[in-house]
């Protein structure tokens, strides 16, 4: 009756993971660890003094950044405002241009497969190019200034926004749309009365989310000459004027936090 394995007092706990999984996980663990060690030695190969030396050095160098020079705040406020305006304009244009793209990239609206696949592939390629690389190319094309920066932000955020919105469109309730189509509504009527009311809150929320991303991207565009506060930051770093640079970094930090807070609040109210 009292089987050794079944009794409540048995010390043998059945393993929660099968042996095969354990072997797999161990193997993957060692492969990941191996690549990690290789990456660490590769990235440190040009570094004088190695890891320990760098950490020691770090604190002495970081001290140069402090205290930040608060006197420059009036001088950097203008470029900061300009940066925010860049993000506003870029987000607006991206939000307008994204509508046709998002509809073309939604499987349930664009029923013609080749067009859907083409738009999707285009958006996927667009999203692989980092914002600053776009900015470098546009600065080469249009010269230094705000315009290449805005253009880079528009293209960059278009990829993200169109993908997110097309996914929202794909998840809508198709029944009202079918009902309209069967009672004789044309494509535009179906989109206007059936689709838009369903996706509008998410659309607004995603546009605000992309605005947050654009603010964060726009503050660094100036590093490659595409306007905004990054330009000033780059100059100050070039002059080794670290207290001024630190003040700019702190201002960027504060602006990003404030805008993110406001945007999150609005998005919470929307959904």
């Amino acid at each position: 009756m009292t089987n050794e394995n079944n009794s409540l007092t048995s010390k043998k706990v059945p393993p929660i993971y099968p042996a095969k999984t354990k072997v797999q996980v161990t193997l993957i663990f060692f492969v990941v660890l191996g690549i990690y060690i290789f990456s660490m030695s590769w990235t440190q190969r040009q570094m004088a003094g190695g890891f320990g030396g760098a950490l020691g050095n770090m604190f002495t160098v970081i001290e140069k950044f402090f205290p930040p020079n608060t006197a420059v705040i009036s001088a950097i406020w203008g470029p900061m405002v300009e940066t925010i305006q860049m993000a506003i304009i870029a987000t607006t244009f991206a939000a307008i241009l994204t509508v046709p793209l998002a509809i073309l990239a939604a499987e349930n609206i664009t029923t013609w497969k080749p067009l859907y696949i083409l738009t999707r592939t285009f958006l996927n390629i667009l999203r692989t190019i980092p914002d600053l690389v776009l900015a470098v190319i546009f600065v080469g094309l249009f010269g230094i200034g705000l315009f290449p920066g805005i253009l880079a932000l528009v293209i960059f955020s278009l990829g993200i926004l169109a993908k997110l919105i097309s996914e929202t469109i794909e998840s809508v309730d198709m029944h009202p749309l079918e009902a309209m189509r069967s009672s004789g509504g044309n494509v535009f009527q179906v989109i206007w009365y059936g689709l838009i009311p369903q996706v509008l809150p998410q659309y607004t929320s995603l546009v605000l989310y992309v605005f947050e991303i654009n603010i964060r991207a726009s503050v660094v565009l100036g590093l490659v000459g595409a306007g905004g506060i990054g330009l000033i930051l780059n100059q100050q770093l070039g002059f080794y004027n670290y207290p001024n640079a630190m003040m700019i970094i702190i201002l960027i930090f504060v602006v990003v936090i404030v805008i993110e807070y406001i945007s999150t609040r609005i998005r919470e109210a929307l959904l």
Binding site: T43, Q44, M47, V61, F65
Partner: peptide
């Protein structure tokens, strides 16, 4: 600035 212009700064 802290560890020099190399890949480890990126890491």
């Amino acid at each position: 600035v802290a560890v020099g212009p190399n890949a480890f700064a990126g890491v």
